[in-house]
Computed example of a mutant assay.
Amino acid sequence: MTLAVDPVAVTAYDAPFLRHQVDPRRVLGAWRLGGAVVLEQQPHQPGADGCVVTAIGPPEDVAELAVQVAPLVAAPWRVSVEEPALASLPEAWRPATVDRWHWMLARELPASSDPGLGVVEVHEAAEIDAVLDDAQPTAHARPGSPGIECWLGVRDGGRLVAVGALVRMPDRTGHLRAVSVLSSARGRGLGRVVSAALTQRALTGGSGVATLGVYAENEVAIGLYRSLGYAVVHRFASGSPGSPA
């Protein structure tokens, strides 16, 4: 039997992503069966056509739950599922084009990190946009994006050469976004410096953890984050149902 649950209560379920990443205010529906949870959420992105569906848990439980929930949910704009359960999704939810990414979590910085070296808080939107336009044009955070607590960066000769954002989640977890280094300044460890500073600030939140998302193919970034104490907790596959291959 499919069990509909209180959207706020579902964030207490024993899965770090639900506790630290999901905003209960955006949850439209929540269902649980065995070890699986399916959420229907309002999208963060402006102009999104439809809801966002997230499914986590063992593939066999996800398969059974998703089949029961799919008729209750309008056609989703985007679906995210833990990668081992991707093939278990009903056809209506299965994206043809898939982004694979890791959700990572840290509880403390290694003693060898030097998170404060040369890092400043940045307030000038044009400076931040200039770095993002060069290094990461499709970044998921920009100046003015909702929920951003701060932008931290490094300057070289007065010019901003590296930057990243900290988003404060509803449970006070700090979530790193858009860590970027100018192409002309790469190879100097600036991404690590900014990431360490953001992580240090993130850990001052009430939840005591820091989180981030990184594409699975970005092995360099994953290695950097591991060196800062992050571990991969969830491996996701995401995409828009019906998108062309």
Rank of each mutant, 00 (worst) to 15 (best):
A141G: 13
G118V: 09
A85K: 07
R142S: 08
G50P: 00
V67F: 03
E91Y: 06
D114Q: 15
V69Q: 08
V120W: 11
L89E: 06
G144I: 09
C51L: 03
H102L: 11
V52K: 09
L65N: 10
S112D: 15
H123E: 11
V131W: 02
A75Q: 03
E108H: 10
A111M: 00
L72E: 01
L89G: 08
A125V: 06
G116R: 09
T97E: 10
V81E: 11
A125L: 01
L117F: 12
V131R: 05
L105R: 07
L65M: 10
P146L: 13
A141V: 15
V98F: 01
A87C: 04
W77T: 02
S113P: 08
V52D: 13
V79Y: 06
H102K: 07
G50I: 05
P90M: 14
R100F: 13
T138D: 15
P76N: 05
P137C: 02
P84A: 03
P146C: 09
A139F: 02
E82G: 01
P143S: 00
D134C: 03
V53K: 05
P143C: 00
R78N: 13
D114W: 15
A85F: 08
L132Q: 00
A135K: 12
V98S: 04
D134I: 04
H123R: 14
W103I: 06
I56D: 04
A139Q: 06
A92E: 10
I128K: 13
L86K: 02
A55E: 01
W93S: 00
C150T: 10
C51R: 04
P71F: 05
D99K: 15
A87R: 11
V69M: 14
